[in-house]
Design a binder for these strands. Structure first.
Lengths: 342, 342
DNA sequence: TTGTACGCGTTATCAA
DNA sequence: TTGATAACGCGTACAA
């Protein structure tokens, strides 16, 4: 049976209250007793009991805020489902989850909203914009003792307590591996990324190039273009790219705008349409897979991203400590037509 | 804030004890009070609090037995890791997990061991042999009020409370889809199944055939053979199959014996070695993928199988009720060379 | 049949 | 600085 505070208090001849004060660093304890309790606790290998902690925490009724720059992005539907699932489970532990969604990537506005929301929150989960202004706000909240968890995209130069989301480089590697198998190892590639300014997109391309160099001697890159995560721009740029490079027989779609690109592929009728690998098995992508236009999508477990990020924030509140890993990375799952039930 | 027993007792003017008796069907309650409490509880949408339940359950110290016919099967290493992870988490809730492994599929011996073990257990998780003798023993345990959860393989004609494991038919469908992509839709197939007597293997083949019929008009099946889940037999049968059918350019490996089959493939040197899709990304299979001999493996989340099966058994003990779904099915994940970190 | 009281492990409060 | 005590929600032994 696991060690309890009560056992420690008995063994070290102090009260449970004192043990609690020592173990949770609340201060107001005589140095010698502090040392004694720590020694006994360590010796016995004390690990706080989650059931007890959770029950006691119910009195405090934590509020966790979730702030997603997600409006208009179908990928986040699943993330939100995950957030809701975590909220439902944590309700038993006296946790309230507030979900806020935003449109657009204006860093100043985002920082303002973070600041306003934070007043009513004990922890914050958010999709940050990669901007120093947002990083500063995260650091301000962190300094005030609030755990801040980034989800789906990370941010540089901030002291967020944990990142929960995609392993972008690994996703790029898997995408290249999949194209290797789809093409028999020989391909003329077109890459359509979202934006050259988005860290994750660049990491995917780096992972892709890594595998290309290592495992795909007969891959050549014809052109790299952007979609700006937009179907219309994706359509136009893909159409131009395909017309200008008739040798292209494979497309790597790094981010959003998949539907637009696929429309362009259909417009530029080819005898052998290009093999297409993209990210995120959202409903429109699933349709494109059923129609044999997209051969494979790399999925990054959006449900788990939502679920795990909220759970991580709660764990931080409960234990008062950061999680063991400061990055919780999703698996990159390969989805094909037959993966999907009809 | 969620509804508690205390609130119900106050609102309906009876004691907490009475509410507990009603809600947990312990009897000895006047009919009118019973009805009243039920009505109030329903109206308030009472959901028992897991933290409280878990804490109270700690006094009882449940023991969950896990009995796996796993010795000599590397797939189960991951299942066992999942079992251990669940055991570690549940230790906080006063749960002990006993892990027992067996070699072989003798149904009489298995039933005997189940019977012996059950004396010290509150719940049982096992990989059953598909035999009426084992089904009878499961039913005996179920009748005595013990939750029995099957993991990885299910059994017909038993009243086990839940099955946690692979979706075999879906796995077969994904495997065929992967071969469709690997071959460009045109293939002469050889299938090497484990055993024609194993339900799951046959379900995989059925799923494979379903997709073959629907999406792969240019697939032809040259021969179907067994490995008996054994590398040596797999080696010999594959060698014979490949020699007798030189047109075979794709292999679907339904179960174990992958290494043996691949040795045969290497022995029968071909200019264009066959495309190979198999199940379970065990360490030897990973090696074969690195060597470009196996193109893809379909993985069935062995870790989750172990973890979820133990958690499910615990939930049954805690709530006294069967889980919402009587089958918890894993996703079939496609693993390729680049999915694996080196 | 019903109500009361205690314990599970932790935390917060109050009095000393 | 310390210890005793109550509270979180649930289960249950025991008394009425």
């Amino acid at each position: 049976m696991a060690v309890t505070i009560k056992q420690i208090s008995e063994l070290s001849g102090v009260s449970r209250g004192t043990v609690d004060r020592v173990l949770n660093g609340r201060g107001h304890v005589a140095p010698e007793k502090d040392a004694l309790v720590r020694r006994v606790a360590k010796q016995l290998g004390y690990q706080p009991n989650m059931a007890g902690k959770a029950l006691a925490a119910r009195k405090k009724s934590y509020t966790i805020g979730v702030l997603l720059c997600s409006e208009g992005n179908p990928f986040f539907e699943e993330v939100i489902r995950g957030v809701r699932a975590a909220a439902k489970e944590l309700a038993d532990f006296g946790v309230q989850v507030q979900l806020h969604t935003r449109k657009g990537y204006n860093d100043i506005r985002l920082a303002e909203e973070m600041h306003t929301l934070a007043k009513d929150l004990h922890a914050l989960v958010l999709t940050p914009v990669n901007s120093p202004i947002v990083a500063d706000e995260i650091n301000t909240l962190t300094d005030s003792g609030m755990p801040v968890v980034t989800v789906n995209t990370d941010i540089e130069g901030s002291r967020r307590i944990c990142y929960v989301g995609s392993d972008y480089a690994a996703g790029g590697r898997v995408a290249c591996g999949m194209l290797r198998l789809l093409t028999g190892g020989k391909a003329h590639l077109g890459i359509l990324t979202g934006s050259l300014k988005v860290l994750g997109h660049n990491q995917r391309i780096a992972g892709f190039r890594e595998v290309m160099k290592k495992n795909c001697p007969n891959f050549t890159l014809a052109e790299l273009e952007t979609t700006e995560d937009d179907d219309i721009i994706g359509y136009e740029n893909a159409k131009r790219m395909l017309s200008a490079n008739p040798e292209i027989d494979s497309l790597f779609l790094v981010a959003a705008g998949v539907y637009g690109v696929c429309r362009a592929v259909q417009d530029v009728r080819r005898e052998n349409p290009p093999k297409i690998v993209c990210f995120d098995a959202t409903p429109p992508v699933r349709e494109l897979m059923q129609a044999n236009i997209v051969q494979a999508a790399i999925d990054q477990q959006p449900f788990r991203q939502g679920y795990d990020s909220v759970q991580t924030a709660y764990q931080c509140l409960l234990t008062g400590e950061p999680p063991k890993k400061d990055r919780i990375l999703m698996e990159n799952q390969i989805i094909i037509r037959e993966s999907i039930l009809r």
